[in-house]
C-alpha cells in the first residue's frame, strides 16, 4: 500500500470522529437543557427578548438543523459573535493566536529538549540513587497544583524581587520579550515533571528489548547503544507525545495567560468562562477538538514516514 492511499484512508477515518465530536458538543450545549438566552438576559427577560436571542443563536431551528450548524462551524470557523465584546469570534481567535504562540512555542521547545536530555541522562544512570532522586523529584513537582506554582512565582520573582513584569503584554518583536520570560519559565517548570517521567519510561521500555542485547553483544559502548539504537526507537512514542501537544500551544496556556494578562487564546477562554460568554466557550471547544484531530492525523502520517511497519497494519 502506498503512502497516499494511507493518507486518504486516514482522512476518511476522521469524518465519523468530527461528526462524533460535533454530536457531543451538540448534546452538551444544545440539548442538555441549558438555556443560554435565559442565562444572558436574567430572570426579568420578556418572552420577546428571549425569543430574539434564541433566534440569533439558532436555537429556534429544528434540532437536526442545529446539529448541522455545529458541523458547519467546524469547517467554516464561523462561530458568530462574542456576547461580552460583540466582536466576531473568529477575529478574536486570529488576534489571540500570536500572543499565545509567543509564550507557548519557546516554552514548549525548551521544555521538550530539556526533558529529552534529562531522560537520556536518567536512562544512563538507571537504578542509581540519582535516577531514583530525579524520579521522586519529578513526581513531587507534579504533585503541586499548577495554580500554586503560578501564584508563587508571580509573587516571588515579579512582585517581591521585581525581576520581571508582573503582568501585561506588548505586541511585536522584541517588545513582548520582557513579558514572556516568567510565563515561559513557569510553563517549563510545569511540564518538565510529566515529560521526564514519560520519556524515561519510554526509553527504559526499549532498553530491555532483545535488539539492545544484540547491540551490546556486538561490543558497542553503552553510549552508542543508547544514542544510536535505543533513542531511535524511543523516538516514535516521543514524537506522538510531542506532536499531540502542538494544538495546545495554539490554544495557549490557560491559567498562565490569564494571570499574566497575555491577550492570547488561553486568557480569552478563561475570560469567557468568567463572563459566561456562551458562544466563545462553544467556539473554543469546537476549535480545540478540531485542532486535536488535525494533529492526530499529522502524527499518524509522520509515523509512517518514520516507521514503515506502521503502514502495513
Amino acid at each position: 500500500m502506498n503512502l497516499w492511499s494511507y493518507v486518504i484512508r486516514r482522512l476518511l477515518y476522521t469524518i465519523p470522529i468530527v461528526l462524533g465530536v460535533c454530536l457531543i458538543i451538540f448534546i452538551i450545549f444544545n440539548v442538555s437543557g441549558y438555556d443560554p438566552a435565559q442565562h444572558l438576559l436574567g430572570k426579568h427577560a420578556t418572552a420577546k427578548q428571549i425569543a430574539e436571542v434564541r433566534r440569533e443563536l439558532g436555537l429556534n431551528k429544528p434540532l437536526v438543523q442545529q446539529y448541522f450548524d455545529i458541523v458547519k462551524s467546524a469547517f467554516t470557523f464561523d462561530f458568530g459573535r462574542s456576547w461580552s465584546t460583540k466582536q466576531k469570534i473568529i477575529d478574536m481567535i486570529k488576534e489571540g493566536a500570536v500572543p499565545s504562540l509567543t509564550v507557548t512555542l519557546p516554552a514548549f521547545l525548551i521544555s521538550t529538549i530539556l526533558a529529552i536530555l534529562i531522560s537520556i541522562v536518567v536512562a544512563f544512570k538507571r537504578g542509581t540513587l540519582l535516577d531514583r532522586a530525579l524520579v521522586i523529584k519529578c513526581v513531587g513537582m507534579m504533585s503541586i497544583p499548577s495554580l500554586a506554582y503560578i501564584l508563587f512565582f508571580q509573587y516571588f520573582f515579579a512582585y517581591k524581587l521585581g525581576w520581571f513584569e508582573i503582568s501585561g503584554y506588548e505586541m511585536g518583536f522584541p517588545n513582548f520579550i520582557p513579558y514572556i520570560i516568567l510565563p515561559v519559565f513557569i510553563y517549563v517548570v510545569l511540564s518538565i515533571g510529566p515529560d521526564v517521567r514519560y520519556f524515561r519510561t519510554v526509553i527504559l521500555d526499549d532498553i530491555y528489548q532483545d535488539y539492545v542485547r544484540t547491540a551490546r553483544a556486538k561490543g558497542l559502548s553503552e553510549t552508542k547503544v543508547l544514542l544510536k539504537h535505543v533513542l531511535k526507537n524511543s523516538m516514535i512514542p516521543i514524537i506522538t507525545y510531542v506532536v499531540i501537544q502542538i494544538p495546545f500551544l495554539i490554544l495557549g496556556a490557560l491559567l498562565i495567560e490569564s494571570f499574566f494578562s497575555i491577550p492570547g487564546l488561553g486568557g480569552l477562554t478563561v475570560k469567557a468562562v468568567f463572563d459566561s460568554d456562551f458562544p466563545v466557550i462553544k467556539a473554543m471547544t469546537i476549535l480545540s477538538a478540531i485542532a486535536y484531530i488535525v494533529f492526530t492525523v499529522i502524527t499518524d502520517i509522520l509515523y509512517t514516514l518514520v516507521d514503515p511497519r506502521v503502514r502495513l497494519k
Binding site: 465519523p16 470522529i17 461528526l19 462524533g20 465530536v21 454530536l23 457531543i24 458538543i25 494544538p247 495546545f248 490554544l251 471547544t285 480545540s288 477538538a289 486535536y292 484531530i293 492526530t296
Partner: peptide, 8 residues
C-alpha cells in the same frame, strides 16, 4: 470515546 477524547 475517540470522539470524546478529541475534545481536550
Amino acid at each position: 470515546y475517540t470522539s470524546l477524547a478529541s475534545i481536550p
